[in-house]
């Protein structure tokens, strides 16, 4: 589909976001490399010596692994004033697909997470039960607890700063989203209050300007996620 006439395996297009290098996805990788090298030699003027150009490499339906990506990168380095923005491809490996599927999935678990126990999930987790003090629930995505959170919850384990921790009853020991931490007030302060921290379900999230954990009513979660 992306294969043009012969000897036009590599086409360079200018777009408003910089250059896109489209690569034929039927020929051999070696042919591609040879032509890319020639193009770079010849089209020096395209890349020029002017301000840095952002380049997107589009490999169509060809799967390009990291070692092939590196080969392309080293060829492109020949041309100065180029910065590779991204590799784009219509295909991904089975492994990546599996990981993506996991990241998108919701795992639901019915139990009490007791002291000393940790539940760790890729993607989002829905816990039907309590997290007791000393217990922890963690996810690369969001943590939803239909019960009382008295222990620890960690959302966005691998750096997703837009992740949230939701709980029907929020009385946590500790919450983190990505690498932002929240500690519960000391027990003494809690005693003084004599009431739960919140009288309705809330979610914890990273509040952008201060980069700290804040709590908001769960019914405002849609607004928060729309803003992202």
């Amino acid at each position: 589909m992306k294969s043009g006439p012969p000897k036009n395996l590599v086409t360079i297009k200018g777009t408003k976001d910089g250059l896109t290098i489209m690569m034929d996805d039927r020929c051999s990788f070696d042919e591609l490399k040879t032509e890319l090298q020639e193009k770079i030699e010849k089209d020096k003027q395209v890349f020029g010596h002017g301000p840095e150009v952002e380049v997107t490499v589009d490999t169509g339906y060809r799967y390009v692994g990291t070692s092939e990506q590196e080969e392309i990168i080293s060829l492109l380095k020949e041309a100065e004033s180029i910065r590779i923005k991204e590799f784009r491809s219509e295909v991904i490996s089975r492994e990546e697909a599996e990981r993506l599927r996991e990241e998108e999935s919701l795992t639901s678990i019915t139990r009490i997470v007791r002291s000393g126990q940790v539940i760790s999930v890729r993607g989002d987790v829905l816990l039907l039960g309590d997290v007791n003090p000393g217990g922890a629930v963690e996810a690369t995505g969001n943590v939803y607890i239909l019960g009382t959170l008295k222990g620890t919850a960690r959302a966005g384990l691998e750096g997703n700063t837009g992740a949230v921790v939701c709980a029907s009853v929020m009385e946590p020991t500790q919450i983190s989203v990505s690498d932002v931490l929240f500690y519960a007030p000391d027990r003494y302060e809690k005693k003084q209050r004599q009431r739960p921290m919140f009288d309705e379900p809330v979610f914890a999230y990273i509040e952008a300007p201060d980069n700290q954990i804040s709590f908001e009513k769960t019914r405002l979660l849609t607004q928060f996620q729309n803003k992202l």
């Binding site: 007791r114 002291s115 000393g116 126990q117 007791n132 003090p133 000393g134 217990g135 027990r187």
Partner: peptide, 13 residues
């Protein structure tokens, strides 16, 4: 609090 915490741990086990 601490006895209950340990009881919770044991119940889990």
């Amino acid at each position: 609090t601490s006895a209950v915490r340990d009881a919770d741990r044991i119940i889990g086990l």
